[in-house]
Design a binder for these strands. Sequence first.
DNA 1: CCTACCGATCGGTAGG
DNA 2: CCTACCGATCGGTAGG
Lengths: 229, 229
Amino acid sequence: MRGFAKVAPMPASSLRATDEAPAKRPRGRPRKTVAERDDGNRRGELLRCAAKLFRRKGFDATSTRDIAAAVGMRSGSPFYHFKSKGALLFSVMQEGMQSAIARQQQALEAAQCNAPNIASRLRILIRNHFEILLGSGSDFIPVMLYEFRSIRAQQRRQLERLKDEYQQPWIPVLEALHASGQLKADVKLARLLIFGALNWSARWYDPRKAAGLDDLTEAAIDLFLGERI
Amino acid sequence: MRGFAKVAPMPASSLRATDEAPAKRPRGRPRKTVAERDDGNRRGELLRCAAKLFRRKGFDATSTRDIAAAVGMRSGSPFYHFKSKGALLFSVMQEGMQSAIARQQQALEAAQCNAPNIASRLRILIRNHFEILLGSGSDFIPVMLYEFRSIRAQQRRQLERLKDEYQQPWIPVLEALHASGQLKADVKLARLLIFGALNWSARWYDPRKAAGLDDLTEAAIDLFLGERI
DNA sequence: CCTACCGATCGGTAGG
DNA sequence: CCTACCGATCGGTAGG
């Protein structure tokens, strides 16, 4: 629980500035302890807390006041960092996707050295996907998956492009498995069904219960490729 | 576009009734044409329109005024049929699930006569599931799937029970497929992954495009059972 | 089922 | 980043 100092309200001198210059930088206020300052991370804290709340309660059911309170701000302050609630949601999704793409890239590069066969290449993609989706502290992708209705068409198109970029490495893998007979289903439909199976896990997976991400990965591989691996 | 007659506002005589009896039945008002009366279906129209809006815009983003307008009512009137917006959502989900259970029962009974093998039993369940989920005019189940956060814990438990009832017939089928080696994955995880693959289709399926529900069913069977069918 | 209305809440902003 | 505030909207209700 992060408290913040209560400050006696100052009498507001209601002089109206006549110049229309936009507000520049915040001026000095009584600082918190040095450990709490790290101003550069306030934006990141907002993103993380917003993602958590958006995931648990939904975008519309989360007020900007909820988010502000979660990071110890007053109600108007999130708008110093994001120009609207929708922009905050979009940033959550966009940065979530960019991070997911980067992590997948790394996972693939690390695996390249092991020169794996094509089926274990799928295993790596699936295992990494579960990690991104269900790993600790990752609410960004679930928000991206479950709040798509709350963003405007133009931003949705940007996110679609990131999603395509993310799915790109999966396509040759699935095609190779199809060509070798390990995956019989139509490749395009198989991809849609597979991502459904994986993504839905964000709805039911409980990290406190038995199955770990490795178990999940094995079950998925067994389901999609049977014993032909 | 269903218009409704504009009525000149009557001067409100502001006598306050002192008895606290709840409002009984609606008393006479100038009727619409006979064809439009069918009072018994107003509740059903509300459910259908609400489901459509909840699916497209989300529960929180849909106002009770939106719903009222969609069926040609004034803003307060939905509360004559449902005691709250949440009760309307719950009814959509509950009646959607009850209908789904009934339709699945029928599909299984119809198939019983054909004495199918176990794999085609799974095919029947999957095909019926796609029909319920993606068939024309069925927004109830997608709403049930995507608005679970918007209902209270107690009602959620009721819906969980209906969901269990729906999934009940799938379990012996999957277990038999597992026993016969046609399904290698752990049965419980396989069930979760399979429902994910199927349910996610409500997100991407477009009836105007190429693939029909039969194609989808084939792809799903191929993916889950490979060529071992 | 309509009219007229209420209290609460919300996203956002001006000014400092 | 806080204070103080605004306009809009929303779920819901009393009374008929």
